[in-house]
Design a protein around this nucleic acid. Structure first.
Length: 547
RNA sequence: GCGCCAGUAGCUCAGUUGGAUAGAGCAUCAGCCUUCUAAGCUGAGGGUCACAGGUUCGAAUCCUGUCUGGCGUACCA
């Protein structure tokens, strides 16, 4: 935000004049607006090193502040030594015209220009359907990818999957058992740790429908066919669900390719060369204890099969070698165990592991009227992401799954989500947008020309100024939400923005007032609409023109 | 046992990396539509920030310990 930069320069130049080099302070909006528009704790943080009372430091600093009186109205000292800045009300409307000029680009910045980030999310193996937790992962990942895009980064959205190994065998055997059962052998044994979902029965039924009983002998070829059929079936469903959420990933990275391309062999060779692995009990162990971790782990089992750690390390190395400046992994809480191992290995292979940012989100529970919901009422089976989408719609799902901080458990209130009313926070935002569109339409009908250069400085009552301030905070919000990788920050901001608009709308008549004011207020509404729409698009949510 | 995450209003959650009187939504109660969408707005009540110590000008925030819940802690992924 430009005003914050301006304030920072004032402080910095005062520090320079005093010959002090110091940056351990913040400039922030005080919670209580009576304290001004921006506030700094510089005098208090300096107190420690200068060994002077905060208030005297503040007084001395203020004496050498140089600023434009048209921008800053008042600088004052308060409390234990806060320096408060109060801006002229006139400055805000002037900043509004750039919002309207930038339109769909308002809020973007180029701080990430020339940098490449890889965001890996969803990454569900094709052995089943997406559930709520996957949905949270998907929505967080997609929103974070959008945020990086808005901050000027070159973004690659990636999905990592494994279509080999035990779990796929298990999928094949599970389908095969259902297949035999549906062909008449009702007591055909189901594998003990098989996939119990109803979808397995659906897949079996489809195989019967298309191919009859030709795979019932269960030869290797038969099982291979069934495995591939099941994999494709699951992947198609997963992709279809993601498409409903408007999520489209750029790269689907198959773990298997790491083997075909020799990257696994190369990794083992390199680890051997670095003396970071050893053999014991017929297995190959990764010497994590040499890398500062507690326990060594097996990376190749005595059977010759690798454990998941090995390809995970090779995969991260591959991402580094593809030249990304930042790697973001989004995992559910159950995947936490492998992370320190992968990062340690990556570091000892000579890569900068601080470029890997791992985001762990906690689980989602579905509730209704305070009770936990496990089954879908419609299907009577466990709730899939698709069931939820059918029930409450894409916008609500996307919003609800990002509206809490990543690291907290998320309670998805089905009753609230289903509610098409003011209680539902999504509709609150969308309603503000639709309301603006309706006013703008009406203005158009009445032949009001918005393009004529508006005199925005006529906007000066508190409702107008508060709304303008909120609109201007959007840029900073996009940056903060991205830096912290917290989509929730943006969701909260949009609610505040919509609230500021609703208040303005309630208090200030837009159409039918004196012409100059009408034009100015219409432009304010337009700027709000632009900001709301841009923010919603980052969250992947529609901004309806009518509700 | 050990590791990670969490514990803030009746419920669901924020709290800008240590700042000023701890906030919001929902729920409850009381108001506001002859005028641009009432899916809106206004007001009220509601708190031992899990507990106990410590660090300092100043702690919901940092440190130590305790308690509670979730997730991990495989030659599963």
């Amino acid at each position: 935000m430009e005003l914050k930069d301006y304030t920072k320069k004032i402080i910095e130049s005062a520090l320079n004049k005093a010959g002090i080099s110091f940056s351990d302070y913040i400039i922030e909006e005080p919670k209580n607006p009576e304290f001004g528009d921006l506030s700094s704790n510089i005098a208090m943080t300096l107190a420690k090193t200068l060994k002077k009372a905060p208030r005297t430091i503040a007084e001395e600093l203020i004496k050498s502040f140089e600023f434009d009186n048209n921008i800053i109205e008042e600088v004052s000292i308060a409390g234990q030594g806060f320096i408060n800045f109060k801006f002229s009300k006139k400055i805000y409307p002037l900043l509004l015209s750039s919002v309207i000029e930038e339109k769909e680009n308002y809020g973007k910045n180029n701080s990430g220009e020339g940098k490449r980030v890889n965001v890996e999310y969803v990454s569900v193996n094709p052995t089943g359907l997406l559930h709520l937790g996957h949905g949270r992962n998907a929505c967080i990942g997609d929103t974070i990818a959008n945020l990086y895009k808005w901050n000027g980064w070159d973004v690659t959205r990636e999905y990592y999957f494994n279509n080999a190994g035990n779990q796929m065998k298990n999928l094949a055997l599970s389908i095969y058992a259902r297949y035999r059962q549906q062909l008449g052998e009702t007591d055909f044994p189901f594998p003990e740790d098989g996939y119990h979902g109803e979808y397995i029965k659906t897949i079996a039924a489809e195989i019967i429908e298309k191919y009859g009983s030709q795979y019932q002998n269960g030869t290797d070829d038969d099982l291979n066919f069934i495995r591939k059929f099941g994999e494709n079936w699951c992947f198609d469903k997963i992709k279809a669900t993601l498409k409903r959420l408007n999520i489209k990933q750029d790269v689907f990275f198959n773990e298997d390719s790491l083997y075909h391309d020799g990257k696994i062999d190369k990794l083992i060779a390199d680890l051997k060369r670095l003396d970071l692995v050893y053999e014991k009990d017929g297995a190959l162990w990764l010497a994590l204890s040499k890398m500062g971790l507690k326990d060594d782990r097996v990376i190749v089992k005595s059977s010759g099969e690798p454990t998941y750690r090995l390809p995970d390390i090779a995969y991260h190395r591959d991402k580094f070698e593809r030249g990304f400046d930042l790697l973001i992994d989004i995992f559910g809480a159950d995947h936490i165990a492998t992370i320190p191992d992968v990062l340690a290995a990556i570091k000892y292979l000579g890569f900068d592991s601080s470029k890997v940012r791992v985001l762990i989100h906690q689980f989602v529970t579905l509730t209704e009227n305070g009770e936990q919901v496990k089954m879908s009422k419609r299907t009577g089976k466990s709730y899939t992401l698709d069931d939820l989408l059918d029930e409450v719609g894409e916008d609500v799902v996307r919003f609800f799954l990002i509206m809490r901080g990543i690291s907290t458990h998320l309670e998805f209130d089905l009753g609230l989500a289903r509610e098409q009313s003011e209680k539902n926070p999504v509709f609150y935002l969308q309603y503000a947008h639709a309301r603006i569109c309706s006013v703008l339409d009406l203005a158009k009908e009445r032949g009001i020309n918005l393009d004529r250069k508006p005199n925005l400085s006529i906007l000066e009552n508190n409702y107008e100024i508060d709304l303008i301030k909120k609109i201007l905070k959007f840029k900073e919000t996009v940056t903060t939400a991205c830096d912290k990788c917290e989509p929730q920050i943006l969701a909260d901001y949009l609610r505040e923005l919509a609230n500021a608009f609703h208040i303005f709308y309630h208090e200030c008549r837009i159409l039918g007032v004196e012409e100059e004011l009408q034009t100015a207020r219409l432009n304010l509404a337009l700027a709000t609409k632009i900001t709301l729409k841009n923010g919603l698009s980052i969250l992947g949510i529609n901004a309806p023109e009518r509700m």
